[in-house]
Amino acid sequence: MILLNSNAQQIFWLGRYLKRIQYLCSQFPFENNEDALLYAHAFCLPAFDVSSLNELVLDAEQPSSFGWQFQYAKDNVQDLRGLISAKAYAELNQNIKNACVNAAYICDVVDECHDVMEAESEEIFLFFKLGQCIEQLDRQLRLKQKIEQTVVELKQITALMKPVGWVALSETLLEFTRHQDLKGFYQLSDGLQHIFEVGTCDS
């Protein structure tokens, strides 16, 4: 299989969007102002208390809402048609549709989509997992949460990606381990974007 850089990036972002939805769902509804303000400040959201943040998350007009995040994920799935199996494509679309129709289903959708992607080729699943880990690292740094286990997982993923030509990713991650803060993360993100644009991921 030949996995184009653009396809790899779409899989990566699908992982990021779904991981973002999963964490937000685990916190929603926010119940105290301190947690709400911490989250809103970390992600530069126009909310000033529990009520305004909960309303924003449900407001389909807001880019940080569940609705927008699912639309981003849906767009990525559409772009992967023909790359992933017809069965996986149908299941991903159905899962996202169910979550949009029934809010109670949102917290389950990421796990189910994860299982769908894991059944695809190892290379496809690695880019999906990479996206999930990068999203998790971003959130942990913004909210000042522990990142040690995520860094370990990223090292494992990047080691598995070397055989498909992504050697530079290990070098980029190594630089981050020397500066494990938001500035280092932005440099990691820039390095990853550069690899998606010019790196090799053919197999």
Rank of each mutant, 00 (worst) to 15 (best):
F127L: 08
R139A: 14
I134E: 03
Q132C: 07
Q145W: 11
E120V: 09
T158H: 13
L143T: 11
S121R: 13
R142P: 08
H114D: 15
K144P: 08
V151E: 07
I134D: 00
L137P: 03
E123P: 00
K146D: 14
V152N: 06
R142E: 12
E118T: 06
M117T: 06
K155V: 13
I134R: 02
I157P: 05
V116L: 06
L137K: 01
I157Q: 04
E153I: 10
F127R: 03
E153P: 00
I157H: 08
K129W: 02
R142W: 07
T150V: 11
D138T: 02
F125C: 04
V152K: 13
K129D: 00
Q140L: 09
Q140K: 15
I147D: 01
Q156W: 08
C113E: 06
K144T: 14
F125R: 05
L126V: 02
E148R: 14
F125W: 09
F127H: 09
M117P: 04
D138N: 14
Q145K: 15
E118R: 15
F128S: 07
I134G: 03
Q136K: 12
I147A: 03
E123S: 11
M117A: 04
K144S: 15
V151Q: 03
Q145Y: 11
Q140W: 07
Q132E: 11
T158M: 10
E135V: 01
L137Y: 00
Q136D: 10
E112S: 14
V116Y: 06
Q149Y: 07
R142I: 05
D138A: 02
C113D: 08
E148A: 13
T150P: 00
L126P: 02
L141I: 14
Q149E: 13
T158D: 09
C133E: 01
Q136R: 07
L126W: 04
S121W: 08
Q132G: 14
K146W: 01
K129Y: 00
D115L: 12
V152E: 10
E135K: 09
K144D: 14
I134K: 04
D115T: 14
G131K: 04
T150H: 03
